[in-house]
């Protein structure tokens, strides 16, 4: 089996490493999880795209131009503008959680790129500590769910499980970063190998197995759970419509049908 870049200084594998059973299981799992994630998400986005929005229902303050809608959506997605208006605690914890998650995810690009992009290398130290703030954000949101009467009332078991999932992922990740380091060079080799269908061995480490198992679970749950809020917000008619109903006639195909019948 060929090693990808044998003379790269940043990571190396023994040339005779052979995939172990666990490596194969995780390889299958990650191919499957990625497939479910990508196909599931594309399917959902396809459904949202195909489903018509027959009436103009943007909520105030509604922009009257497409540029305005893009700005509104950007404020919503990047700064959670509406949530800010609603509740500062939820907003703060939500921001902490999501911004940390974004940093952590970007930091993880180092395991999938060779050579590592400069900006990914730059955020590496921040990304490491973002794991801690991710945990804090999730803990705060969970505390809200447990101790605020209204939020407890609306929570389902899956809402708690979703937070538990992030907890396990974050804690196992932090353990690997700060306590018991697995051979990250080998981990990187493993994922680069997965991407080029050139399988490598996955270092054996309980923390790593837990981490990867939960991440794969998250990927597969994504298209069938409330995690759909991420693509959903872009399709929300109350947020993505231009407020120009008097200036431009807006009509869905099924509604147009009614006109030919009458």
């Amino acid at each position: 089996m060929q090693v990808l870049t044998p003379d790269s200084a940043s990571w190396q594998l023994a040339p005779d490493t052979r995939p172990l059973p666990m490596s194969i299981l995780f390889a299958i799992l990650f191919y499957l999880a990625t497939l479910v994630f990508v196909v599931g998400l594309l399917y959902r986005i396809g459904v949202y795209t195909r489903t018509p929005a027959p009436l103009k229902i943007p909520t105030t303050p509604a922009p009257t131009t497409t540029g305005g809608v893009v700005l509104r959506m950007a404020r919503e997605v990047l700064f959670f503008e509406s949530l800010f208006k609603s509740n500062l605690w939820t907003w703060g914890l939500g921001m902490l959680f999501h911004a940390s998650l974004a940093l952590v995810l970007l930091r993880h690009l180092r395991y999938f790129t060779e050579p590592v992009w400069a900006w990914v290398a730059f955020i590496q130290p921040f990304g490491k500590y973002a794991g801690i703030t991710l945990l804090l954000g999730a803990a705060g949101l969970w505390a809200r769910r447990l101790f605020v009467e209204r939020i407890r009332y609306i929570s389902t078991p899956s809402d708690h499980l979703m937070l538990a999932l992030f907890f396990v992922i974050a804690i196992s990740g932090l353990m690997m970063t700060f306590v018991a380091h697995p051979d990250v060079v080998a981990v990187k080799g493993y994922f680069l190998g997965l991407m080029s269908f050139n399988w490598q061995a996955l270092p054996s480490s309980a923390g790593l197995y837990v981490h990867l198992l939960m991440v794969a679970a998250l990927l597969m749950i994504f298209p069938i759970s409330k995690l759909l809020h991420a693509p959903g917000v872009f399709f929300s008619p109350s947020r993505n419509q231009t407020d120009n109903p008097r200036e431009k006639r807006h009509i869905a195909a099924w509604a147009k049908q009614l006109e030919s019948e009458s």
Partner: peptide, 22 residues
């Protein structure tokens, strides 16, 4: 659900954050 994107997206997207609850 097939005729109204609003309904379809709104059924899926809620995360029970409680922003609307009060």
């Amino acid at each position: 659900l097939g005729k109204y994107r609003s309904l379809k997206v709104y059924m899926d997207a809620c995360v029970h954050c409680g922003a609307c609850s009060d």
